[in-house]
């Protein structure tokens, strides 16, 4: 485990299975406290989805976990694994590198190429190794980005609205793919999304970020497959929507 620096106190995690442990985290831009005493833990291999209104600080939290928040002031305790991978909303592929080179970027070792090919095959892109990123569709680019994240065998996968820019059909496919990759690799996942159904479909636990801290923390104990339409699903969905401040028509 490594604790990120920058006004933060390093915590040595107890021997346990916590992948992420955040307590009393504060992040402020100028006078504005975006995160204000936030506590959150993720067990190793746990899939947590985070909902929250736009501007509620979801990305700020993810950037803190990824060690990318050099420009934010703050305090609190935060520990994350050594191997963290990030999937951004934009696939963020280097346009001047072919697909395979994008996946091997930063990998070392003689088998880097082979591992990257395997990862690409896993996301269904075998045979596209030599394509340029501009030649891929949005969904395919995001799959390359997933392959780039997973080839590093992360203990923690951070995803910031990774499917937000995709059309509904592609998004549904990506959900299936992500679920399968998660089953195979079992990293802890913190998935930021604005889609309540996406959160319920994929996560073990859904948390709602509001007012700078975790305002709701609900387990998803629905029998598989989780189909919208069952009464349990509707209840959970409504509770989350209420937490997000959405008026739910009764009846």
């Amino acid at each position: 485990m490594a604790a990120h620096t920058g006004g933060l106190t390093a915590t040595v995690p107890e021997t346990g299975t916590a992948a992420v442990r955040i307590s009393g985290l504060v992040r402020a831009f100028g006078e504005r406290r975006v995160l204000d005493g936030l506590d959150l833990s993720l067990r190793a291999g746990e899939f947590v989805a985070m909902l929250g209104r736009s501007g509620s600080g979801k990305s700020t939290l993810l950037r803190a976990l990824a060690g990318l928040d050099h420009d934010a002031g703050g305090e609190g305790e935060l520990s994350a694994p050594d191997h963290v991978s990030v999937v951004f909303q934009d696939a963020r592929l280097l346009p001047w590198k072919r697909v395979l080179a994008n996946v091997t970027l930063g990998l070392s070792g003689a088998d880097a190429q082979e591992r990257a090919r395997t990862a690409l095959a896993e996301v269904g892109l075998a045979g596209r190794e030599d394509a340029w990123p501009v030649e891929l569709s949005g969904g395919e680019q995001q799959r390359v980005s997933l392959a780039r994240s997973l080839v590093r065998e992360p203990q923690l996968l951070l995803a910031d609205e990774p499917f937000g820019a995709l059309d509904a059909l592609t998004r549904a496919r990506m959900h299936t793919l992500l679920a399968r990759l998660y089953e195979r690799h079992r990293p802890a996942v913190l998935l930021v999304t604005h889609d309540v159904d996406e959160a319920i479909a994929l996560a073990d636990r859904v948390v709602v970020l509001d007012g700078g801290h975790i305002a709701a923390d609900l387990p998803v104990d629905l029998a598989a497959p989780r189909r919208p339409g069952t009464p349990e699903y509707a209840v959970l969905r409504e509770r989350l929507l209420v937490r997000l401040g959405v008026e739910v028509p009764s009846g």
Binding site: G124, L125, G139, P225
Partner: peptide
């Protein structure tokens, strides 16, 4: 985590 994995082979759209 639920089990969408049964349908997973349908996810690839590059097989043509």
């Amino acid at each position: 985590m639920n089990t969408h994995t049964t349908e997973s082979t349908n996810a690839t759209d590059t097989t043509g």
